[in-house]
């Protein structure tokens, strides 16, 4: 009998072969009958076939959980093929399926078949997964906002909450995603630039579309630039800008504010 290591390498190669269990067996030097017992219930190939089918269906199910709108956009068959190709290119090397889909955006961007819309949609869906698993921050409240030193406001820097992501997109992916959730059967959209903020506050994950000037300010702030520099070149009414800050604060975008530098990085 082969060693434990050899047996496991054999079965793993067969169960994860991108084409089929039969192709996996054919690629091995040891025959199926040398490894797997035969009985009247099922043939050895049917037996290893259960593990092969289970491998790809489990990973497809995982990716469908993380990327439901991508699945809708591509259709079931193309999504299944995508998952199989992805699992082959990026086999899981960790103990946790929570992170299995982390490379799908990169994988989509490299594939000729995927439009940039689909990879942008995937980026939005991964941002949702990402903030779901990111730590919570102490809430920075609107009262904290009003207590900032008025004589040094320009020097104030905001610390981003770790469960916030800001996306700059060439397509209206957030609208598409919402239409998908609403079962409005959206079609592939034309290129229109958009900015989407994804943030988790406690249990709730929210998406907010931003105007270009809002996105510019927030991107600067989240990157650690002080308030004065972040507002530089932004033409907007002071009251409107104040309302942005109230809205962002209520949504838990910031974890703190100070005239000192924050050391944490915005992802």
């Amino acid at each position: 009998m082969p060693s434990l290591t050899a047996l496991q390498q054999w079965l793993f190669a067969v169960a994860t072969h991108p084409d089929s269990a039969a192709a996996g067996v054919a690629a091995q030097s040891r025959t199926l009958e040398e490894i797997v017992k035969t009985n009247a219930i099922a043939s050895p190939l049917e037996r290893v076939g259960i593990y092969h089918q289970s491998y790809f269906s489990r990973l497809e199910e995982c990716l469908a959980d993380d990327y439901p709108a991508v699945k809708y956009a591509l259709g079931d068959a193309a999504f299944a093929q995508l998952c199989r190709d992805y699992a082959t290119a990026w086999p899981s090397k960790g103990t946790n399926l929570n992170v299995f889909g982390v490379h799908l955006v990169e994988f989509l961007e490299e594939r000729a078949m995927a439009t940039s819309f689909v990879s942008e949609l995937a980026r939005l869906e991964w941002a949702i997964v990402d903030v779901l698993h990111s730590p919570s921050a102490d809430s920075f409240s609107t009262s904290d906002l009003s207590s900032l030193p008025s004589d040094r406001l320009e020097a104030v820097r905001f610390a981003p909450s770790p469960s916030v992501r800001l996306l700059s997109c060439e397509y209206p992916v957030n609208q598409y995603f919402q239409d998908y959730l609403d079962d409005a059967r959206p079609r592939l959209p034309a290129k229109t630039g958009s900015f989407v903020l994804v943030a988790r506050q406690g249990y709730r994950i929210r998406r907010l579309e931003l105007q270009p000037n809002q996105a510019t300010v927030l991107r600067r702030l989240l990157s650690g630039e002080p308030l004065g520099a972040s507002l530089s070149g932004i033409v907007s009414d002071e009251g409107v800008v104040a309302s942005w800050f109230r809205d962002w604060t209520e949504r838990g975008i910031f974890a703190g504010a100070s005239t000192e530098h924050f050391t944490q990085e915005f992802q």
Binding site: M1, L4, T5, L7, Q8, Q9, L11, F12, A15, T16, Y51, S54, Y55, R58, L59, C62, P91, S92, K93, G94, T95, L97, F100
Partner: peptide, 14 residues
Amino acid sequence: GVGGKNSHDLLPMP
């Protein structure tokens, strides 16, 4: 799994 890869399946022992 084996060889640093994970199938996330409960594979049988010999």
